[in-house]
Design a protein around this nucleic acid. Structure first.
Lengths: 209, 209
DNA sequence: AGGAATCTGTCAGTGCACGACAAGTGTCGT
DNA sequence: ACGACACTTGTCGTGCACTGACAGATTCCT
């Protein structure tokens, strides 16, 4: 008699994982990332620090895993865009939609964590480093999806890679302007404007239509 | 009687620093980055590992410091471009000129180290992470220079930041294509093509002329 | 119930990075 | 030329991140 779709063990792991994330973000917020030790995080959840490393490859990984989920959200939104939409436009709409989703659903775990993650990325060098590394990987994944939309080979043709990188850059620029410059405006709006700037030149049309 | 412009102490430091870099690159090349310990690098130069950390903030920093010099080269080249040249074009020419310089001057310390650094960045995650972090800082510096060229405020106006990021992206795309795809062609040529692709849309004209 | 698979804790060890103190060396004024 | 001073370095000790190995506990399957 298995309750739900998952077994007890699986659910327990899920709970431990989320508890570790929550405890970590809480401690990071209060003490700062560097000042927080893995031991403290583990202790707060009452597991051994060894166990922490069975869930996360590194202390930074707690934050990175949340950011990865945000990329997944973008991919899902991207798949919902019409196939004949120019790629940059599709990416634009998808990003804005995801951000709007975070803003609207105040009770969602991600909406509250989005700002938290952004903060950690901004003022913890090692987190920033890992996040950039992850972003460059996600850029490849995004480039492949865009190449598919364009109907070209993502390896031979440099254009999807450029669009992906440029789009990601626009997002980063927007998030940064949001945190440093106008934290009161919704991020989605700033992102919208950043993409609008790009619209002119590198908006390759979709494959055929 | 001080020989040269620097005192003995300063010259000694310079020599230690370069010896550490050489020893580190040598060991990285033979054993791999992760497998090389700071102790080994220090031992090869006959200093204590503690001293190593007085020259470099981290093991990664040895590689990063070399990459920083490459950015400086770009800045210098950029300053030589005519003031009325559109910013993206100026950046384009500067980057290509620097790469051509590395290629031409085979005896230059940087030309031989360029490939070495690129290799380390490619297959050592922690080096990659740090390099990306450094690039994002250099992006800001570059954005400021471009903003100056455009005669705009680099904080209020997002365009210089976008051009800087997009240009840096083009370079990275080129270097990557070089290493993974066509290592026989000169990098400068690949970079030239990457920038050419961008030329269409975001080539903002200079301030006034 | 009982064996198999999986998760966890403990222990021990490595490597990175830093603070503090003492000793050696270069620099500079007189 | 000499001595006070600043700077660099080595040594020692510490803390933290991260990993491998083994043993015990928990869950799963039949």
């Amino acid at each position: 008699m298995t309750v739900g779709a998952l077994g007890l063990r699986e659910r327990k792991k899920q709970r431990t994982r989320e508890a570790l994330i929550d405890a970590a973000l809480d401690l990071f917020g209060h003490k700062g990332f560097e000042a927080t030790t893995v031991d403290e995080i583990a202790e707060a959840v009452e597991v051994s620090s060894r166990t922490f490393f069975r869930y996360f490859a590194s202390k930074e990984d707690v934050v990175i895993s949340l950011m990865e989920q945000q990329w997944v959200d973008v991919y899902e939104e991207l798949d919902r865009r019409p196939a004949d939409e120019p790629v940059l436009t599709a990416l634009w709409r998808a990003c804005v939609a995801v951000l709007r989703g975070y803003e609207a659903d105040g009770t969602s775990p991600y909406s509250s964590k989005f700002a938290c993650v952004a903060q950690l990325v901004q003022d913890s060098p090692s987190v920033l480093a890992r996040s950039l590394e992850m972003c460059s990987q996600q850029n490849d994944a995004l480039a492949r999806r865009l190449a598919q939309r364009m109907g070209v080979d993502p390896i031979a043709d440099p254009r999807p890679g450029l669009v992906a990188a440029v789009g990601a850059t626009a997002l980063q620029v927007a998030i940064r302007a949001w945190r440093e410059h106008e934290p009161d405006k919704p991020v989605s709006e700033l992102a919208d404007r950043a993409f609008e700037l790009l619209q002119g030149g590198i908006n390759y049309p979709a494959a055929t239509a």
